[in-house]
């Protein structure tokens, strides 16, 4: 479904990604792991249209969507749950979800709101609470639900477990399992490599802006040199 070829992204003089290629098939959960500074967030940003790649292509299905704006990417079917969640703290849970569905027709939006209430019971209980009053775990669920409100073909998450207590991290990975069971296509950036590899169908290891390893989650987990690959030892 998503096909990234030879993507290179630069911030001014900094080359944050070099010639990165990866693919995500329909219904797959793909993990992207690597130490901080590896370029994971840059990669998601370049796919989602927040950053302009200097070389390479991004295809979604048969369409070339390289260098589109975020609003166009979302309409093409790619939703990103950004790093640090970035929910709208002055808006209620419901309003956050509605803005997530800004691109879908009204009737569909109402249906999706109900689906999200089903999928995230925690949020249903806080429906009219301001985003700013949610706990970290609740906010993360809201951020994911908000992205799902656009009915995306591909859901991308950036560090969904960052800054969460271990028990909430379990919850996030349970959620990823549930979404996989629903047949959704997901690309997740995670720092927690072991958990990610357990949860993912396939994964890529990114280090210093380059893909240094890839394979199924189990294959990578079994690799003796995973730690060295990871941190460049």
């Amino acid at each position: 479904m998503l096909e990234v070829r030879g993507l290179t992204t630069e911030y001014g003089a900094i080359t944050a990604l070099r010639d990165v290629s990866l693919s995500v098939g329909a219904g797959e959960v793909v993990g992207l792991i690597g130490p901080n500074g590896a370029g994971k967030t840059t990669l998601l940003g370049s796919i989602a249209g927040l950053l302009m790649p200097s070389r390479g292509t991004v295809h979604l299905g048969d369409d070339d969507v390289t260098g589109q704006t975020p609003e166009k990417m979302l309409r093409a079917g790619v939703a990103l749950v950004p790093e640090h969640r970035r929910i709208f703290v002055d808006m209620t849970v419901e309003e956050n979800l509605r803005i997530g569905g800004v691109t879908v027709p009204h009737a569909r939006r109402v249906e999706l709101l109900e689906e999200m209430a089903e999928l995230f019971p925690v949020l249903r209980d806080k429906w009219t609470t301001s985003g700013g009053f949610l706990s970290g775990g609740e906010a993360q669920q809201l951020a994911i639900a908000r992205a799902l409100m656009s009915g995306p073909k591909l859901l991308m998450m950036d560090e969904p477990s960052l800054g969460l207590a271990p028990i909430i991290v379990d919850l996030v990975f349970d959620l990823i399992d549930r979404l996989r069971a629903e047949g959704r296509t997901i690309l997740v950036v995670e720092q927690n490599a072991t958990r990610m590899l357990q949860a993912a169908d396939r994964a890529y290891v990114l280090r210093s802006g380059v893909i240094v390893a890839d394979g199924s989650g189990q294959e990578l987990l079994a690799r003796e040199d995973l730690f060295d690959t990871f941190v460049g030892g």
Partner: peptide, 10 residues
Amino acid sequence: VKAAYLGSAA
């Protein structure tokens, strides 16, 4: 150290 980098399950 390994655990910190690769996640608690390591």
